[in-house]
Amino acid sequence: MPPSSSSPPLPSSPAFVVICILHSLIAATSGALMMFHMEGIYTFTHGPEAADKLMGSTPHDQLLIRTSDSFSGLLLFAIGFLLFMVSFVRDRDFHSFFAKGCTLLHVFMALWRVYFERRVEVLAWDWIRQTVGDILLALSWVFFLVYSWREKYD
């Protein structure tokens, strides 16, 4: 049998699996908390006065805000589940592509917070902490890209 011109796929990187599972746990936990305990999270992260403002003043506003928070939490939980599934993909080219996309997503989220969320009076000081979190999550993917580049060319 003649030798194949394409080399066999490289095994999955353990760093990719670890980062995906950690990000999956963060997203799924945050999503579940958003769906079921948003008022407590607002109070814990913003304080009682800001939490009252964020929860709305009329029953109609409160219903809309709770519905929006529930759907946002459900979306975040689904993202966590998808990240868990992606962690089992064994294609290194996909790992690199996915890590670049996640880095870009986190950078855009940080930019969104800097340019828009800081203008919301109730969230005036909270955007800094969340922006730092977005940058740290992006850096975890950058570290993976550097690690995988080192593995590839060593």
Rank of each mutant, 00 (worst) to 15 (best):
His95Ile: 06
Ser72Gly: 09
Tyr115Trp: 13
Asp69Gly: 00
Ser96Asp: 05
Thr45Gly: 02
Phe98Trp: 13
Ile21Lys: 10
Val146Ser: 02
Lys53Leu: 15
Leu105Val: 08
Ala124Arg: 15
His106Tyr: 09
Lys152Gln: 07
Asp134Val: 01
Ala110Cys: 11
Tyr147His: 14
Ser24Asn: 01
Trp149Cys: 01
Phe116Leu: 15
Val107Asp: 02
Phe94Val: 13
Asp52Val: 03
Ser70Lys: 11
Ile128Ala: 11
Thr131Asp: 10
Leu145Arg: 15
Val89Asp: 04
Asp93His: 12
Ile79Pro: 00
Met34Cys: 10
Ala110Pro: 11
Leu136Ile: 06
Ser70Arg: 08
Gly40Leu: 00
Cys20Val: 07
Arg90Glu: 14
Thr29Lys: 01
Phe71Glu: 06
Ser96Leu: 08
His37Gly: 01
Glu117Trp: 10
Ile65Val: 13
Gln62Met: 13
Ile19Lys: 10
Leu104Val: 07
Leu83Asp: 12
Thr103Tyr: 11
Thr45Met: 09
Ile19Tyr: 12
Ile19Leu: 13
His37Val: 00
Lys100Arg: 15
Leu137Pro: 00
Ser148Asp: 15
Val122Asn: 03
Ile21Phe: 04
Val122Leu: 04
Pro59Gln: 02
Arg90Thr: 14
Gly47Ser: 07
Thr103Gln: 14
Lys53Asp: 05
Ala138Asn: 04
Gly47Met: 05
Ser24Asp: 08
Val132Ile: 14
Ser57Met: 06
Gly133Asn: 08
Ala15Val: 06
Leu111His: 06
Thr45His: 02
Ile79Val: 11
Thr43Cys: 00
Lys100Asp: 04
Phe77Ser: 14
Gly40Arg: 00
Phe144Ala: 02
Ser87Asp: 05
Met34Glu: 09
Leu10Ala: 15
Ile26Ala: 11
Leu137Ser: 06
Ala28Thr: 10
Phe97Lys: 13
Val114Glu: 05
Phe71Asn: 04
Ala27Met: 07
Arg113Val: 07
Met109Phe: 05
Leu63His: 14
Pro11Phe: 01
Asp154Thr: 12
Leu139Asn: 09
Phe71Arg: 03
His46Gly: 01
Ala50His: 09
Val120Met: 06
Arg150Thr: 04
Ser96Cys: 11
Trp141Met: 13
Ala51Cys: 05
Asp154Ala: 13
Leu10Met: 12
Ser140Gly: 04
Thr45Phe: 07
Phe16Ser: 11
Val120Ser: 06
Leu105Ala: 15
Phe71Pro: 01
Leu74Arg: 00
Pro14Trp: 07
Ala50Tyr: 11
Val132Asp: 06
Ala110Glu: 03
Ala110Gly: 14
Gly40Ser: 02
Leu123Asp: 08
Phe81Tyr: 12
Phe94Ile: 09
Asp61Val: 01
Phe144Met: 06
Gly101Thr: 07
Val146Arg: 14
Ala28Asp: 04
Gly101Ile: 04
Ile19Met: 04
Trp127Glu: 12
Met109Ser: 08
Met109Tyr: 12
His23Lys: 10
Phe143Glu: 01
Leu136His: 00
Phe36Ile: 00
Ser68Ile: 09
Arg129Lys: 10
Ser7Ile: 05
Val142Leu: 15
Val142Trp: 13
Phe81Pro: 00
Phe108Val: 07
